[in-house]
Simulated assay, not measured.
Amino acid sequence: MPGDVLLLSNSRPSGGAEPFTHAREVLAEHLGGRTVWFVPYAQADHDAYATWAADALGLDLRPLHREPDPAATAATADAVFVGGGNTFRLLHDVRRLGILDALRANAACRYTGSSAGTNLAQPTIMTTNDMPIVDPGGLDAVGRVPFQVNPHYLDPDPTSSHQGETREERIREFHELNTVPVVGLREGAWLHRTGDTVTLGGHTARLFRRGEEPLELGPGTDLSWLISS
């Protein structure tokens, strides 16, 4: 049975609350009692990020980047937390270091991602919002879930003067060339896969499918069909 997966849209709740306070309960349920390796490669300062994450999560996180062979450690890890930042930097480094293949092979590992870490859990990083600051050597990711996610999903703002594409328009462009469903996770939302069950928690989301109108999803929605369709 594949290890459980928890995919958070964000680490910092709105309104100035402390990081991860919106997801304390589900994080404790998902990671409690396990040795958790923190994957900091989405940001430039790995030491500072690992320290911040340990304090913010209140967990005894082990920094993967300080291991002599990070890939070997990831290959046998009981649980990982992949932090946010730039998705292209993250994928570039985990591919270069062999961590990408190690995480793919270690299906029993409990995977937690936030923002860019959520993007890495998908089949590809094609629905990230991030700027491609480095060539990651391909867009294929870990594939811990068979659908795509758009963390930090923002609804169209009819009062905005911004003339570029909205998130919805960009996801529609994705579906002009791809058939994979996309879950737009609003801030404060997460997806929790336990066995063959996928549930939306924390906040609302939107489901995008090719050729169909977006569907509003409320907390508690069962999305298990996404891993069997």
Rank of each mutant, 00 (worst) to 15 (best):
G16Y: 07
A121C: 03
E168F: 05
T166L: 11
T21E: 15
T159G: 09
G16E: 09
S115F: 03
E169S: 14
G201W: 00
L185I: 05
D101K: 08
D140I: 07
Q163M: 12
P2M: 14
N10L: 09
L6M: 12
R186N: 01
T112P: 01
P68Y: 10
N178G: 00
Q148E: 11
S114P: 02
R210H: 05
S228F: 10
F88E: 11
L154D: 09
V36F: 12
D78E: 15
R193L: 13
Y49E: 13
T76A: 15
R209K: 04
R193D: 01
P63W: 02
R96W: 03
H65K: 06
A121F: 00
A205P: 03
A17V: 09
A54Q: 11
G3Q: 07
G220E: 02
A48K: 14
R66P: 07
R104Q: 05
G83A: 10
G201E: 01
T112M: 02
D45C: 05
V134Q: 02
I99N: 08
H192E: 04
R170F: 11
H46P: 00
I133S: 01
A105E: 09
S224I: 09
W37Q: 02
T194P: 01
E18V: 12
W52A: 15
L207F: 00
N150P: 06
L100M: 11
P2S: 14
R144S: 02
N119R: 03
T73S: 04
P158A: 06
D135V: 08
F81K: 07
N150D: 12
T166M: 08
V26H: 05
T197E: 06
F147A: 12
E25L: 14
D60N: 13
N119C: 12
L154T: 06
A17I: 06
H192C: 05
L59A: 13
I171E: 06
G195S: 10
D140T: 07
W190H: 11
F88G: 04
M126G: 06
T51R: 15
L191E: 04
A23Y: 12
T127Q: 02
G211S: 07
D93C: 08
N10I: 07
E169K: 07
T21A: 15
T166A: 07
A56G: 09
T112E: 04
R34G: 03
P181D: 08
L100Y: 07
T197I: 02
L8R: 05
A79L: 09
W52F: 15
P214C: 04
R62Y: 01
S161F: 14
